[in-house]
């Protein structure tokens, strides 16, 4: 959007790959609690879906962007492990916690393969494999962007873009909207997403917070769903 022109030239390709659905990170296995919210009757029409998606974006912004930007700024292994531990304690919802560590580990595996020169990523993989860290997604995404020297705001925007992409993809697969309508929603929610990024940009991890108690409650029901398409 307002990236400095020089910087963006080389990094566009990098960013596009990071947010490409072709990049194997397993994002589409997760519905961000949408599946549970539908079965609990909290999302049933396009209005409640719109609220759900906005709440999810707001929640990603308030709860996770602080960890994305902290990891982005601090690309060293020891500091990253500490942030990962804090994030693990912050993700008190076990369904969200599990989804976060599985997506994070998948991203870490992919990024370490795609960027073998970034030795830190290999080291982090070792740390996660040894059980010394959970490998949460926000922290992995932040450090990958940091090591790739992306612009800070682009990194945060991309993170929220992934949230929007994945939740809309889940909405289509749950038959709440068709693919065309989902694409239209993706476009129309751009302004909301950008406002969230602006509001939460560079917020400290001590200010990380949840904003939607109802959806949080429903999401933790996920394991009790009789039949389910998604992991979370």
């Amino acid at each position: 959007m307002d990236l400095p022109a020089k910087k963006s030239q080389g990094s566009d390709w990098v960013v596009w790959q990071l947010v490409d659905s072709f990049f194997p990170t397993g994002g589409f296995a997760h519905s961000y609690g949408l599946e549970a919210a539908v079965q609990a009757g909290l999302v049933s029409d396009s209005k409640s879906l719109d609220t759900f998606i906005k709440s999810t974006l707001e929640n990603s912004g308030s709860l996770l962007l602080p960890f994305v930007s902290a990891s982005f700024k601090l690309p060293d292994v020891a500091g990253w492990i500490e942030l990962d531990r804090l994030l693990n304690a912050t993700l008190s919802n076990h369904v969200a916690r599990r989804a976060s560590s599985s997506q994070g580990s998948a991203l870490l595996r992919t990024a370490a393969t795609v960027y073998p020169d970034l030795a830190e990523l290999g080291e982090l993989r070792g740390v996660v494999r040894a059980g010394r860290a959970s490998g949460h997604h926000a922290g992995v995404f932040g450090i990958v962007c940091g090591l790739l020297k992306l612009d800070a705001l682009t990194c945060q925007r991309a993170y929220l873009y992934l949230t929007l992409r994945d939740v809309l993809s889940a909405a289509t697969r749950l038959n709440l909207v068709g693919p065309l309508q989902a694409a239209a929603m993706q476009q129309s929610l751009r302004g909301f997403g950008e406002a969230v990024v602006r509001k939460c940009a560079d917020r400290g991890v001590e200010d990380a917070c949840q904003v939607s108690p109802l959806l949080d409650t429903a999401q933790a029901c996920h394991d009790h769903l009789f039949s389910r398409l998604f992991c979370s």
Binding site: L42, K54, E58, L86, T90, A208, C209, Q210
Partner: peptide, 23 residues
């Protein structure tokens, strides 16, 4: 050591009022 860090924040927002989140 932190084992549970939880902050719930409800703020009025024009595009996402609290009442819409709580149904």
């Amino acid at each position: 050591n932190p084992v549970f860090l939880d902050t719930m924040n409800l703020e009025q927002d024009v595009s996402l009022p609290i009442s819409s989140r709580l149904q």
